[in-house]
């Protein structure tokens, strides 16, 4: 029937299941949160390290087509895992972690708080889902948005590296695990930042306030730690630094990168002195706690129909 007929039509078909509904919430939220010039600008700005390395590869392939393999594989990066490890560390070290954090906070802080502000839960909860389904949908959306400063640019770099640096079939197979290691690292980072953002988003109706609180909570311990560490010089204090936790967790997932090349030496800049597995466990535990508190907040939320 035409959409312009003013009449009411009954629906006799089948209804879809639970995960279809959750995915509908995730997709819709992602489209709302990841829209506008602000999002594009922030995304480019936060991905400057990976964009710079990728552009460097492209220019080398254009202007030094014969030497690109030797230069990239031999002298500069040595291998894909080292290249990607450096990129992750350039993006998430103590000096530059602020930008991806701002990106994740700015784009995701309204995920639940905007719904609270506009009383949208009354509409969602009148449909056949429960608050947990709603929370899962929102969480998936946050993970998708966060991927734009983690796995998506990394994947783009890995593909460029493999195609432009003249990696042979055997070398590709040998370094194929990097794609999965990078995915694991991205998931840990997304999970950590995403869950904390979601928690603060579920605590307030003001998305800006939620974002600012999230950034403060992430960075205040690191700032205080740096001051204290200048006096006490204790390694264990690094467990309070988000960038140290991420660096050591990523190290666990990648293994120690070889350092024989020019940039391989730079990997030492990102040296750390805390246990990687403990760091990974801390990040995951904090994330789970944040998610549980988010679900608790959602169940406590009074829906005024």
């Amino acid at each position: 029937m035409s959409v312009f007929d003013r009449s009411y039509r009954t629906y006799e078909g089948e209804l879809k299941g639970r995960w279809y509904k959750i995915w509908a919430i995730a997709k819709s939220t992602f489209r709302v949160q990841f829209s506008g010039k602000k999002a594009i600008f922030l995304m480019i700005f936060c991905n400057l390290p990976v964009l710079a390395f990728t552009l460097m590869l492209v220019f080398m392939a254009i202007f030094l087509p014969a030497g690109v393999g030797n230069l990239v594989l031999g002298e500069l990066f040595e291998s894909l895992d080292l290249a990607l490890y450096l990129i992750i560390m350039f993006s998430f070290n103590a000096g530059s972690i602020f930008m991806p954090t701002v990106f994740i906070a700015a784009l995701n802080s309204g995920t639940i708080s905007n719904d609270k502000k506009h009383n949208a839960l009354a509409l969602y909860m009148a449909k056949p889902i429960d608050r947990l389904d709603y929370g899962i949908g929102k969480f998936i959306s946050v993970m998708m948005v966060s991927s734009f400063v983690t796995y998506i640019p990394w994947f783009m770099f890995m593909v460029s590296f493999t195609l432009l640096a003249g990696v042979s079939g055997a070398e590709f197979l040998q370094t194929f695990w990097v794609y999965f290691a990078a995915f694991g690292a991205a998931m840990v980072i997304n999970l950590f930042f995403g869950s904390i953002t979601l928690l603060f988003s579920s605590m307030t109706k003001q998305s800006i306030l939620g974002g600012i609180l999230m950034i403060l909570i992430i960075f205040l311990p690191s700032v205080i730690l740096n001051s204290v560490n200048m006096i006490f010089q204790q390694n264990w204090l690094n467990y309070f630094s988000v960038s140290s936790l991420i660096a050591s967790s990523v190290y666990v997932l990648f293994g120690k990168p070889s350092a024989g090349s020019l940039l391989g030496e730079a990997a030492n800049f990102f040296g750390f002195n805390i246990n990687g597995w403990v760091s990974l466990a801390i990040l995951i535990l904090i994330s789970i706690l944040a998610l549980l508190l988010t679900i608790r907040n959602l169940y406590k939320e009074d829906i005024s129909g």
Binding site: K16, K21, A24, N119, A122, P128, I129, G305
Partner: peptide, 27 residues
């Protein structure tokens, strides 16, 4: 259910809001 109070899904247009809620209903 038609709620009494002001309630919208922010950031979307009318057809997207209604179709989203249709999908959440299982359509």
């Amino acid at each position: 259910y038609m709620p009494e109070h002001y309630t919208i899904i922010p950031g979307v247009n009318a057809v997207k809001q209604v179709s989203l809620l249709g999908k959440i209903a299982g359509l």
